[in-house]
């Protein structure tokens, strides 16, 4: 049993210590907003926040997240109010298929926490999530929009 703290709730999950956190979240906790894309920390679809840092959960053993504060896309909005990044994504109609966007939004939320007003060069250096639909141009606009509001 591993105790995971996800979105402010505690879950005792019966997984082996080396089970990737992604699959513990999806299959044992039951939150499917966090996505499987590659399993090797390349695409970022599985990005969650752990103790304030954006982490690719497909490549992190669940045991290493035990007891830490995990936030998934389902827990990003607070008290019914969308996070500024979510609001910008809604305002600019950014998602296409949307499959990568949970991870994209979590990665951008992490970026803005570290760097509230990123330049284009900062965005280029920090954001490496894959979007196959190709939403990057609007993602960039969305980051600036969210930064302007925060």
């Amino acid at each position: 049993m591993i105790r995971l703290m996800v979105n402010g709730q505690s879950y005792d999950v019966d997984v082996e210590p080396d089970t990737p956190l992604l699959w513990a979240i999806r299959e044992n906790v039951g939150l499917t907003g966090t996505k499987y894309g590659c399993g090797i920390a390349q695409c970022g679809a599985c990005t969650v926040d752990i103790d304030g840092t954006a982490v690719r959960s497909c490549s992190l053993p669940a045991s290493e997240a035990a007891g830490k504060k995990i936030t998934t896309i389902e827990g990003l909005a607070q008290n019914g109010k969308l996070h500024p990044v979510q609001q910008a994504w809604l305002d600019l109609d950014i998602p296409q298929c949307g499959y990568c966007q949970s991870g994209m939004i979590m990665a951008v939320a992490g970026l803005l926490k570290d760097n509230p007003k990123p330049t284009d060069a900062d965005i280029d250096a920090a954001l490496t999530n894959i979007c196959r639909c190709g939403t990057y141009q609007r993602v960039r606009a969305g980051i600036h929009a969210a930064a302007a509001k925060a």
């Binding site: 939150l31 499917t32 907003g33 966090t34 998934t72 896309i73 389902e74 990003l76 909005a77 969308l82 979510q86 994504w89 809604l90 109609d93 950014i94 998602p95 949307g98 966007q101 949970s102 939004i105």
Partner: peptide, 9 residues
Amino acid sequence: TPDKINGKQ
């Protein structure tokens, strides 16, 4: 779009 930004989709 709304369900694609909060994990509900």
